[in-house]
Design a protein around this nucleic acid. Structure first.
Lengths: 197, 197
DNA sequence: GCTTAAATATACCGTACGGTCTAATTAAGC
DNA sequence: GCTTAATTAGACCGTACGGTATATTTAAGC
């Protein structure tokens, strides 16, 4: 940001947005390294210099992509949480948000969690990897917070970790299967776990 | 395979093996797309033509890498299973094999499950992706088989899926954290789940 | 309507990629 | 010791990569 000033909102379909849209689609469905700058600008219908006027480098674009996917999920989660009536439903809203996000991508090639896939392409110390780690810890933190309405802090901790593993594990398997069905399975397992505990 | 015939065993440190060794290390720690052919042959101490005499292409090398990692895990699992004394221990042997495999990589940069990371780099219909899917289903099948000694087929099915999610989820989170600790956490959660059920 | 900034097209840069060719060398099998 | 196959070094290929330079056009703000 910074220099855009008064132009902050920008007109509909600004170069910045179209680029990030196209990059997000390609990064998710084809992978990051497999997606070249030229493919992005072609799909965005934009000049190459417009990309480099809006993003410092490809890896800056990747960072924006990662942040955006996490923000998308947070928005989906906020919607689900707003209509959840009980503590258990508020916990399951996290699973619902995962399902919503997955079903967004299902039509045009579901390949699992975009953040985990991105991290898998990044080297060990990369900033993007750390960002993904933080996002996943945030999700577990949300789970823990909601669980505190149900049980002791100690059990909330353990259960939050357990549910996070169910979430990420089912997402990994669902991505391999190419369909979000397994996410419903993990939601059901979580629901069962919460009612028996 | 096929044409090697009498030379099947090959001498120690054959080009084929040194190439696959080097490629496996690089693919795992740096990622597949980020690892060039030149980096592999340099690390293997081998001529470029030796690579193409042993592997048809880079993606053939990737397939060999995927198969090899799965075979490594199967071997670790077989060892763990052989000394497991009870049905529960035989189930936890699957978790132990995951831990063993992870700790192999911990010294030189732990980045989670090599198979899942590889799949994350492959396009939607790729053969390697399907291979990874099959391997993960095989692991779940092993869990289901061991669980049949403990409970009904229906509950074994559900529990196998549950344990598989715990496994893969904890592996994903552990990879992001850069340390295998969370695998011990999921093993403990699994043990608890098995004793209370 | 003038100014200022964003976005454009196009040519270009060096480099690295996956992969091939050739010719020479090494080593194993009989 | 001869044959046969594996391995080697190194030049080479076309292509695609991420990124830059420049000059021009488009469009928004006042």
């Amino acid at each position: 940001m910074g220099t855009q000033g008064r132009n902050s909102g920008q007109r509909r379909g600004s170069a910045h947005d179209r680029i990030l849209d196209a990059a997000s689609r390609r990064f998710y469905t084809e992978g990051i390294a497999a997606t070249g700058i030229d493919a992005i600008i072609t799909e965005a219908g934009v000049a190459k210099m417009s990309l480099y006027n809006n993003f410092a480098s490809k890896s800056a674009l990747v960072e924006a992509y990662v942040e955006r996917r996490h923000a998308e999920w947070l928005a989906l989660y906020a919607t689900r949480r707003a209509t959840a009536a009980s503590p258990v439903e508020r916990i399951l809203a996290v699973f619902d948000a995962y399902i919503d996000h997955a079903e967004d991508a299902y039509d045009h090639g579901f390949r699992g969690c975009g953040l985990l896939n991105a991290a898998a392409e990044l080297p060990a110390g990369d900033a993007g990897r750390h960002a993904v780690r933080t996002h996943k810890e945030e999700v577990e933190g949300i789970l823990r917070g909601e669980l505190l309405a149900l049980t002791t802090p100690e059990r909330a901790d353990a259960l939050a970790t357990h549910l996070s593993f169910l979430l990420e594990g089912s997402m990994a398997r669902a991505g391999l299967a190419g369909a979000p069905d397994l996410l419903h399975t993990s939601r059901a397992l979580a629901a069962q776990l919460l009612t028996t505990a």
